[in-house]
C-alpha cells in the first residue's frame, strides 16, 4: 500500500519566543500506509496528542514537513488547511463534543453544514446510513442529550465519517467509556476501516484497543521509542 501520510523530522516547541521554550517533539519521522489501522501510545505528557494535532493540521509543527496524500501541508494558509482538513480528515475525541441542542442526525451533518455546501438528499441519506452503521437506526431525531455515553460517542464516530475522510484521527476515543462499550466502539472502528478503507490513527491508553491495532507506535518524551507491526 502507498503512504497516505508522511512526517519528516517533525519538531514542536511551545513558547519559542519566550525565556523558557519547551520542546515536546524531537525529530519525528513516520509514514502511514493507506487503509492501515494504527495506534499511538505513551504516557501523559509524552507528546502524543501534540503529534496528533499536528497530523490533523490543528497545530503547526516548529520544524519538519508533513505530506498528506502527497501535498506538503506547510505551504497552505490556515483557511486552505481548514478545507484540506474537511476533505481528508475525520476526528474523534474522548469527549464527543456533540451540540446538545441538535439531534443525532443534525450533529452528524454538522461538518457538512460548516462547509457551507448545499445539503443534498444524497448527503442526508449518507448521514442516515452512517447512523445505521453505528447501530443508531431509530435514534436519528433524538437530541444528543437524550443519548447514553456510548450512543453519543457512536454519533461522534458517524459525524467523523460524513465527509468520507481518508484518515480518521482518534484521541482516546474510548477513554470515557466502560469496557463493554469500548469493545463495541473498537469493533465499529475496525468495521469502518475494512468497509471504507479508511486509515485510522488512534491515540489510546487502553491496551485492549492498542493490542488489536495492526501497528503500535510508542512515544516517550517526544520521541518514537517503539514502532512495531503485527
Amino acid at each position: 500500500m502507498a503512504d497516505i501520510l508522511t512526517l519528516k523530522n517533525i519538531t514542536k516547541t511551545y513558547g519559542e519566543n519566550t525565556k523558557n521554550p519547551t520542546q515536546v517533539l524531537f525529530g519525528i519521522d513516520l509514514n502511514f500506509e493507506e487503509s492501515s489501522f494504527n495506534s499511538i501510545i505513551g504516557q501523559s505528557g509524552s507528546g502524543k496528542s501534540t503529534l496528533l494535532n499536528i497530523i490533523g493540521s490543528l497545530d503547526r509543527p516548529s520544524g519538519g514537513e508533513i505530506f498528506l496524500s502527497g501535498k506538503d501541508l506547510s505551504v497552505f494558509t490556515n483557511k486552505e488547511l481548514a478545507d484540506i482538513r474537511n476533505q481528508y480528515l475525520g476526528f474523534i475525541f474522548q469527549f464527543h463534543y456533540l451540540l446538545p441542542e441538535f439531534s443525532a442526525l443534525e450533529n452528524v451533518l454538522m461538518p457538512y453544514k460548516i462547509s457551507k455546501k448545499e445539503l443534498t438528499k444524497e448527503i442526508e441519506d449518507r448521514a442516515y446510513e452512517l447512523l445505521e452503521l453505528v447501530d443508531l437506526k431509530g435514534f436519528e431525531n433524538k437530541l444528543a442529550t437524550n443519548l447514553s455515553g456510548g450512543q453519543q460517542q457512536r454519533v461522534a464516530i458517524a459525524r467523523s465519517l460524513i465527509n468520507n475522510p481518508k484518515i480518521v484521527l482518534a484521541d482516546e476515543p474510548t477513554g470515557n467509556l466502560d469496557s463493554d462499550t469500548t469493545e463495541k466502539v473498537y469493533n465499529l472502528l475496525r468495521e469502518i476501516n475494512k468497509k471504507f478503507k479508511t486509515t485510522f490513527i488512534i491515540i489510546t491508553h487502553d491496551r485492549h484497543i492498542a493490542e488489536k491495532t495492526d501497528r503500535v507506535i510508542e512515544i516517550t518524551d517526544g520521541r518514537i521509542s517503539l514502532d512495531i507491526k503485527k
Binding site: I41, R207, A210, E211, V216, E218, S225, L226, I228, K229, K230
Partner: peptide, 10 residues
C-alpha cells in the same frame, strides 16, 4: 507471543 507485549519487553 502477543506483539503488543513488545512494549513492556523493550
Amino acid at each position: 507471543s502477543n506483539y503488543y507485549n513488545l512494549v513492556v519487553t523493550r
